[in-house]
Design a protein around this nucleic acid. Structure first.
Lengths: 189, 189
DNA sequence: AACACTATACCGTCCGGTCGGTACAGTGCG
DNA sequence: CGCACTGTACCGACCGGACGGTATAGTGTT
């Protein structure tokens, strides 16, 4: 075994991966167990029920979200830049957990929905504080949501290379929204 | 019986409603039949399989989308105004069908995904034609997507009354993005 | 009778969950 | 040391119910 508590993480990874790749329907206990290289009994040893598995994933997301929150506040390029850019940064553990939980939220899983709403709210307040105008902040948040919608539903909208250019372009457009100050990180002053 | 061909529509409505309210998982044949006030046998008389039911819903969406497309091109307030406003106009048959199909697309239903992408593409080209700058068009499309993401996942973001005001505010903010020409034929002043 | 449709019984499969069991690493103690 | 026992990690057969789907008998209208 690679690491002591790796089985739990492997199961969570498998669950997440199945949710992202094939949706809630396909993320059955058997499928998760198989993907994690564990037997069904083994899975249920670590997570006593499917609800427990879901809770485990949500907790994981919350942990990532807390870390992201700190990084966001410390982002040198400003909050807007940070939030927009990380909206499509596929492959990070945080993004994957977020998309997986959003699949869950499409069902009627209440906790998944509220957790997602909380993460979103945190972003929006941070942007509002950075940008000043709450209406502008909402517009920017909606762009971020749209970015997620696209990567979640349609699977990105370009290759990684073209995406970076597209991101710069998008941020340049968005900079027009902030009336005050220059299109910069809204430095302190 | 109310109307001759109402059974089919009622079934589609029920399927749609279940998808929106409780996700793909809950939209089983039994549940759909019960919600439509039809027996399971009755449901399967109209739709030979669950795939046929899904196809029926997608066809319905395509019909609505075609009608919407025409309305959009003829919209007096301009394409942007039309697309943004209809993004949260909950309750219209078109919106409901769209959200229902997007639930399907969260699973691995390929046709649902491509249909959604087609609708989105149609909007984006229309906006691009109206606005000029493709980068601005994409930003606006992302806001529309974000609006859908919100109404889909988090369930709107305000009451109907406050939403109209919020919409006006949002459109005013978005008007700043179009550098050329006036902020659109809307409201003016 | 023919047709459009409904209702129910049923089938095989899959799903979430239980349960009995295995392997093994301790650990306290005589 | 040897032995009894405990806890942790895991396996896989199995169960009841739900699922998608079939088959068929029945009903009301024309």
């Amino acid at each position: 075994m690679p690491r002591p508590d790796s089985a739990r993480d492997r199961i969570l990874d498998a669950f997440q991966g199945l949710l992202i790749a094939s949706g809630e329907r396909a993320a059955t206990l058997d499928a998760v167990a198989a993907a994690a290289g564990v037997s069904k009994g083994g899975l249920l040893y670590h997570f006593a029920s499917k609800d427990a598995l879901v809770d485990g994933l949500i907790e994981r997301l919350e942990a990532f979200a807390a870390a992201d929150d700190e990084r966001m506040r410390a982002a040198p390029e400003g909050t807007v830049d940070y939030v927009i850019r990380t909206s499509v940064e596929e492959g990070t553990p945080f993004d994957e957990a977020l998309i997986a939980v959003s699949r869950l939220a499409q069902g009627s899983h209440e906790k998944a929905r509220t957790t997602l709403a909380a993460v979103r709210a945190r972003w929006e307040t941070a942007i509002a504080a950075d940008v000043g105008d709450p209406a502008v902040a909402r517009a920017i948040m909606l762009v971020s949501d749209g970015l997620y919608y696209n990567s979640t539903l349609l699977g990105a909208f370009g290759t990684t290379d073209s995406r970076d250019g597209a991101m710069d372009e998008l941020l340049a457009v968005l900079a027009r929204l902030t009336p005050t100050a220059s299109p910069g990180p809204a430095a302190a002053s």
